[in-house]
Each structure stands twice: as C-alpha cells, then as structure tokens.
Amino acid sequence: MKLFFSTLMLLMSAVVWADAPLSSQMDSYLVTNKDGKEVVEEAEQASPGDIVEYRLTYTNNGDQPLSGLVITGPVPANTVYLKDSAATQVSADFTVSIDNGDSFQAEPVTKTVTGENGQSKNVEVSPSDYTQVRWQPKGSLQPDQVQEYRYRVRVQ
C-alpha cells in the first residue's frame, strides 16, 4: 500500500506540474564566426575560448496574465559573462550578482574596497566577476505569450 501511495503521489505531482501555467526552458548555443558571419548552433560541448549563448524561454500556458516574474540565469563556473550581451524584447529591469545571488545590482556594479592606506573607495566590478544575471519584466506575461531572454559567456 505504501508503494502504491508513493506512486500515486508522484503521478499527481506530475499532473500538477504539467498543468502549471508557467513553463520555462534554458538552452545553450555555441557562437562562432564562419566566413565573417556569426553562426549560432546548439551547443553539444564547449572548449576554452568558446562563446556560449544562453536562451531562457518562458511561456504562459494558463488563461490568466502572470506578473511578478523574476528571470535569473547563472554564469557557470569556468565562464565569464560578456559585457552588454544580455538581450530581451521585453521591457525589464536588468541586474547582476557578484555574490552568487545574495544581492543584485544594476550595471555598472561597484563594490567598496579598502586600500593599503586603510581608506575605503568604490571601484567598478568587471563583468567577468558576475555570477548571475536577472531580469524583472515590467509587465505581465499574457496567456499563450512567450518571452525570451539571452546572454553570453566565454568559456575559460
């Protein structure tokens, strides 16, 4: 009976998830240049120096608008965010994290450092120090609407 109940709970969870109004998908693409033109192909693997574009796609499968979305993408270990590569056609606030998502700031990101003389000063943080990127759309995701968010990293 316990096995039956557990299996039933898993099936119910799958049904609830399948009926969720919001679906999301993250895909990665390798960005190369061929004959002077940029080519973007699905990424099977990447090597140091390669540029990878991440695409985060969100779809409203429900019948009501969805608001309050927060779209967050990782900057994986052994990669660096490429400055000004974040893009979307959605009106959204774009922020980044340099502390694994504990806090987010608009660019240019600054932090306080203490110099050898003991004085503190604000310095601009390099995009290579970003650990996550985030968009907060200003509007709602309408029923059947799809929104896409993109950014690029370089593999180290």
Rank of each mutant, 00 (worst) to 15 (best):
L3N: 13
S85V: 04
E38K: 13
Q142V: 10
V80I: 13
R152C: 09
G101T: 02
S97A: 05
S128T: 15
N61D: 07
Q89Y: 02
M26L: 13
S28A: 06
I71S: 02
K37P: 01
V75K: 07
E41W: 01
E38H: 02
I71T: 07
Y54C: 02
Q25V: 13
K37D: 05
T59L: 12
Y54D: 08
S97N: 03
P48N: 12
L10V: 09
S103E: 08
S91Q: 11
S97Y: 04
R152L: 03
V75W: 01
N78H: 07
K37N: 14
S24A: 08
L10R: 08
E107N: 12
A92P: 03
V75C: 10
L69K: 01
S28E: 05
Q132I: 07
S67K: 11
E124Y: 12
Q25R: 14
N33H: 10
N78V: 14
E148I: 10
P143A: 01
D84N: 11
T112I: 13
I51F: 02
S97D: 14
Q64W: 12
M12K: 04
E107Y: 11
K111F: 08
G68R: 09
F94I: 02
G73I: 04
K138W: 03
T110G: 13
A18W: 11
S140V: 08
M1A: 14
T59K: 12
E124G: 07
Y130E: 12
D35A: 06
F94P: 00
S140Y: 04
L141Y: 04
F5Q: 05
M12Q: 05
A86I: 02
Q136Y: 01
T95C: 06
D63C: 10
G101L: 04
L10S: 12
S85L: 06
Q119G: 00
A18Q: 06
D63H: 12
S13P: 01
V113R: 08
R154Y: 02
N60W: 04
S120T: 14
V113Y: 04
V80T: 10
E124P: 08
S91N: 14
A77Q: 14
S6N: 15
N61K: 15
L8V: 15
M9H: 11
K37G: 06
S128C: 07
S28I: 03
V80H: 09
R150T: 11
D19A: 14
V146S: 05
E44T: 14
E53K: 11
N61M: 14
N61C: 05
T57C: 09
L11M: 11
P127N: 03
S91F: 07
P65D: 02
E44V: 15
V16L: 15
S13D: 04
P108R: 07
P108E: 04
E44N: 00
E53A: 04
T95D: 15
V113Q: 08
K34L: 06
K111G: 05
A77L: 08
D102R: 15
L56I: 15
S67M: 15
P74G: 08
L22S: 11
G118A: 02
Q145R: 01
E116Q: 07
V109D: 03
F94M: 05
S85C: 02
V125L: 01
T112F: 00
E42W: 09
T32H: 06
A20Y: 10
R134F: 00
P21F: 10
G36R: 06
D93I: 08
S85N: 02
L30F: 07
V125G: 13
E38V: 14
D129Q: 09
T112A: 03
D63P: 01
Q89H: 08
